Computed example of a mutant assay.
Amino acid sequence: MQQQIYRVGVEDIDYYPMYSNKSALDNPGFLIDVLEIFAKQHNIKFEYIHLPTTRFHEWYQKENIDFRLPDHSLWNSGNEGLVFSEDIINLRADTVVLKENRKLPESEIRTIGTLYGFIPGPQWASRIEENNIEFVYEGSTRILIRMLKKGLIDGLDLNIHVVKHYATELGYDANDFALATHAPSTQFSYQLSTTSHPDIIRQFDAFLENAKNEVAALKRANNIYN
């Protein structure tokens, strides 16, 4: 029986262990690992199309993809017709700072680095409205980590596992980076979305329910502890 092939749009950025850019074929990351197990169980094939994060909202209309990964309803205002899976992984949006600054008062966190195309977390909404915090955008996780290490920014709106991975790659001590204890935080999750294949989403939801042990093992294999 011939495999059905589906195109999955993935952000073309360095964000391992969650996911990687198109050059990292040997280490696609946790999210794609999960999809690959699902695909094998259902005799389907996913083709991963790495696309610019800055045009995230145009992927379905312009790139002819079947699914988008990762996605979440919070990132899609007025984008009707999207169907979302259950949560693949639940995470906490925190602010990563240098370890010696982990107890810095929130009022002293004035510049936050994040990636182009990323939306500031809702925990920063009031500070943004008051115009007393600045978000600095870059196209590289590595550049943002270097900026934090040099004191050019106060914190990072990036996942702590991602920061520690690339900090180690850059030759820094991963333990030099920590979560700010006085910065606001919020819960969020990564989901799979589609505009045209709700049947696959239903199958994927059933898979997530029945494969909790396998997903947990993948988290451990990718050094994700949440």
Rank of each mutant, 00 (worst) to 15 (best):
I65F: 01
N159R: 09
N90L: 15
N43W: 14
P122N: 15
E129A: 15
S73A: 12
K164N: 04
F84E: 01
G113D: 04
D176H: 10
I133L: 04
Q4S: 06
Y116V: 14
E47H: 09
A178E: 06
I160C: 00
Q4F: 06
L104C: 05
A180S: 12
V162P: 00
D14C: 14
A183I: 10
H165F: 13
L35C: 05
G171T: 09
N132M: 08
E86Q: 14
V96G: 00
T141P: 00
P105A: 08
I5M: 02
K164F: 05
G151F: 05
P52L: 10
S185P: 02
I128E: 06
I37T: 08
F30W: 07
G113R: 07
F204A: 03
Q61R: 13
H165T: 10
E58F: 11
E130K: 15
G155V: 03
V34W: 07
N132D: 08
E63I: 03
L69V: 06
E130S: 15
Q4E: 05
P122I: 15
H57Y: 09
D14W: 10
I160Y: 00
I44W: 04
L91W: 13
E106V: 13
P70R: 09
V136L: 07
N213S: 10
E138I: 07
P184Q: 12
D14L: 14
L148N: 01
I37E: 02
H197P: 01
W59K: 05
N222D: 03
A125L: 14
L51K: 06
E169W: 11
T195D: 00
R146S: 00
Y19I: 04
D199V: 14
L74P: 00
A206N: 08
A125D: 11
S20W: 08
Y16S: 07
E209Q: 09
F135E: 01
I153G: 01
A217F: 09
H72L: 04
S77A: 13
S193L: 09
Y172C: 11
A211I: 05
W75E: 03
P120W: 11
V163S: 01
E100S: 07
S85Y: 07
L152M: 06
A125R: 15
P120E: 10
E80A: 10
D173M: 12
R110G: 02
F84D: 01
W124G: 06
L179E: 03
A216T: 12
P28Y: 13
Q203F: 07
L31D: 02
P120R: 14
E106P: 00
D87Y: 11
L35N: 04
N90C: 09
E108F: 10
H165Y: 13
Q187L: 14
E86S: 13
R68Y: 02
L148Q: 01
Y172A: 07
